[in-house]
């Protein structure tokens, strides 16, 4: 199976009113493989939502792309013009469910009008009836009640709204669906239903892969194939889900996984530990490894000077930490 998306050396910064730069995504490389769920996990402000915007070409000022490329089908789509992107890529190759999308539905519009808008955007020749028919079939196929189409957003529960937004985003059978914190505002039962829908979309080959962005590691445990851990604008570790959850390498990933609180027998006896310090300000990130000021395994004269490269330490498992090699000389 090939890669659907390959990002190399992505750099994307925000420019503030005062002219400062916030290095939200700094030299990030990753690939999205066919058939997989790639989880991107990190704390707030680590750049994971910015990465979602870059991968889905929804970059708007004050966010700018400063470097790198994103290849899909062999083309670098970062250099494509807006019109081609809109017609050929957005919605068809890559689709995004942005954070909080379910709450940004226009409250005065029925759901079916969104559907018509989305489909007309891409097929100028499609009639309203055809568009609706397509949507109705899709809803029924995924066992969602098609009466949702006649409802206004406020008549739907949170979980239903999120599922509706997800189905609308995948009407054009995009290869890659990027879902940015789609369940963080939902109750646990609705959360599970949304996850089930994503898995169902994959199973029916409506979409070929999912990039799932979240701050909740335990959630990824249940349906991700690979997980990337982000810290301060960089990917510090990426590898198979089981490895990252049970045997992470990077000191940050280790601390993050050990601070997870879940209701499982034995949890109560365990003492969870906080990571000392606070996440860095991305206007002026630490030199060298960005985690070095908080790292328990910090090596003076190395970690604070050189940026550790992301190197393969195990099959398909890459880590950016000098504890596992990567030193020059």
């Amino acid at each position: 199976m090939g890669n659907l998306l390959t990002a190399t050396g992505l750099k994307s910064y925000y420019r503030t009113v005062q002219g400062e730069e916030i290095k939200a995504v700094d030299d990030v490389s990753l690939e999205v493989r066919e058939g997989e769920v790639l989880g991107i996990a990190g704390e707030s402000g680590c750049g994971k939502s910015t990465l979602a915007s870059v991968l889905s070409f929804t970059v708007l000022p004050p966010l700018y792309i400063l470097g790198g490329e994103v290849r899909a089908d062999g083309n670098n789509i970062l250099v494509m013009d807006r019109e081609t992107l809109r017609r050929e890529i957005k919605g068809k190759y890559i689709s995004i469910v942005p954070q909080g999308a379910m709450n940004s539905l226009n409250p005065t519009m029925r759901i079916k009008n969104f559907v018509i808008d989305v489909l007309e955007e891409h097929f100028s020749e499609i009639s309203k009836e055809e568009a609706l028919q397509r949507a109705r079939e899709r809803f029924e196929a995924l066992s969602l009640p098609s009466r949702v189409l006649d409802a206004y957003p406020h008549q739907l529960s949170g979980g239903m709204k999120q599922r509706t937004v997800t189905v609308i985003s995948t009407l054009l059978n995009p290869n890659v669906l990027i879902a940015d914190e789609p369940t963080s505002a939902l109750d646990v039962s609705s959360q599970k239903i949304v996850i089930k829908l994503l898995v169902e979309l994959l199973r029916r080959k409506i979409i070929k892969s999912v990039v799932f962005i979240t701050h909740e590691l335990p959630l990824l445990r249940h349906f991700a194939d690979r997980i990337a851990i982000m810290y301060a604008g960089k990917i510090v570790e990426i590898g198979p889900m089981e490895d990252i959850i049970f045997n992470p390498f990077h000191p940050y990933s280790r601390l993050l996984t050990s601070s997870v609180l879940v209701p499982e027998p034995g949890m109560k006896q365990k003492k969870i530990e906080a990571i000392p310090g606070v996440p860095p300000n991305l206007k002026n990130p630490p030199s060298g490894c960005r985690f070095h000021p908080r790292c328990p395994s910090y090596m003076e004269g190395l970690c604070n000077i050189e940026i550790p490269p992301l190197i393969e330490v195990k099959e398909d498992h890459r880590v950016s930490c000098f504890l596992y090699g990567g030193k020059n000389g």
Partner: peptide
């Protein structure tokens, strides 16, 4: 309660919350 929930609502809640050592059937 965590090991042996009695009420149906509690049971459902515990079933839907993501944990680490038991994987969901999806």
């Amino acid at each position: 309660i965590i090991n042996n929930p009695k009420d149906d609502y509690t049971k459902k809640l515990l079933e839907d919350v993501p944990v680490i050592h038991r994987k969901w059937e999806l």
